[in-house]
Design a protein around this nucleic acid. Structure first.
Ligand code: SF4
Ligand code: SF4
Lengths: 150, 150
DNA sequence: AAGTTTTAAGAGTATTTTATCTTAATTTAA
DNA sequence: TTAAATTAAGATAAAATACTCTTAAAACTT
């Protein structure tokens, strides 16, 4: 799998938050139920996004998390980088350490292009754009398709 | 990581075999030492490639493995598919099941293009091509760069 | 035929990832 | 000021991946 489970959950909930922009803090419990993700696991993932500065959290009743920046300013790349790190975009298709520094592997030229393709796609896509599209075309962000865009 | 460790090891040893085409069976022990991969682990990986029909093996002294087809006919995609499967090229960036069948996720269009980019790169690259390039430019396929092309 | 070399196969171990559980700290509201 | 709601944090558990060990089977050499 290209992205870890944690990362995929991070993307899904970021999308959720982008579609609720301006609604204040959204509780993690609510998100975990609507998106069908384990509450405790999601909490940990969102803590990562919070400490990366992408979200801010608030405790107590009426608490929850919300995006710090406007969703249109947050690219998928930032979320992936915060959870899975940027190794995917700097390291080797053959798993060799120190790409570009020591002598490269035979696959380098082709892989570097492919790798950049992934990065550019993630950098060039923002949360609001996706949430709008999802809402307009009634696309899904849960396994059972049960989630309804507001 | 895009490809599993097993898959990367499979690619490295396939590259090794391609550069030894016509030398008959190459022992797994020799490969594991030259490529610095655990012998038993490599054995299992090569068993997968053998049962997928990409390699054939022979027991006893003078035994080992060799490519069934000419290395120029084997694409990286075949090796990846035999070890990691083709999920990467059919499934969802958001980890949702049944892509294309049920309603898609908002990322689908962009992700499908990116995904195809990875597949086309792997399909469009064959073993001999890479081995030749590696030999000519003295590129590496081991971590320490210690491997020498023959 | 016996001994050696080599892959095959399955069991076993270690590490990482994924997920859960428990307790604490903070904030709101009655 | 007390109770309820909520995130924070750390410990634990389960599952998946990565790796190792042991024994068996096959094939070559003498
Ligand atoms: S140079 Fe080769 S080894 Fe390094 S990252 Fe690129 S493909 Fe991988
Ligand atoms: S349609 Fe959406 S859910 Fe399905 S594979 Fe494509 S990106 Fe993933």
């Amino acid at each position: 799998m290209l992205l870890s489970k944690a990362c995929v959950y991070g993307l899904r909930s970021s999308l959720f938050l982008a579609s609720h922009e301006g609604d204040g803090y959204i509780s993690i419990r609510e998100m975990s139920e609507k998106l069908d993700i384990s509450f405790h696991f999601l909490t940990k993932i969102l803590q990562q996004l919070t400490s990366a500065g992408l979200m801010e959290s608030h405790k107590g009743p009426k608490g929850g998390v919300r995006l710090t920046k406007s969703g249109s300013e947050v690219s998928l790349f930032e979320i992936v980088a915060a959870i899975d790190g940027t190794e995917l975009f700097t390291e080797c298709a053959l798993g060799l350490p120190g790409c570009g520094v020591k002598k490269p592997c035979p696959l380098h030229d082709k892989w570097a292009d492919t790798r950049d393709g992934i990065r550019l796609m993630l950098e060039g896509t923002n949360l609001v754009e996706l949430a709008k599209k999802g809402k307009k075309e009634n696309l899904r962000i849960t396994e059972d398709g049960g989630f309804e865009w507001i």
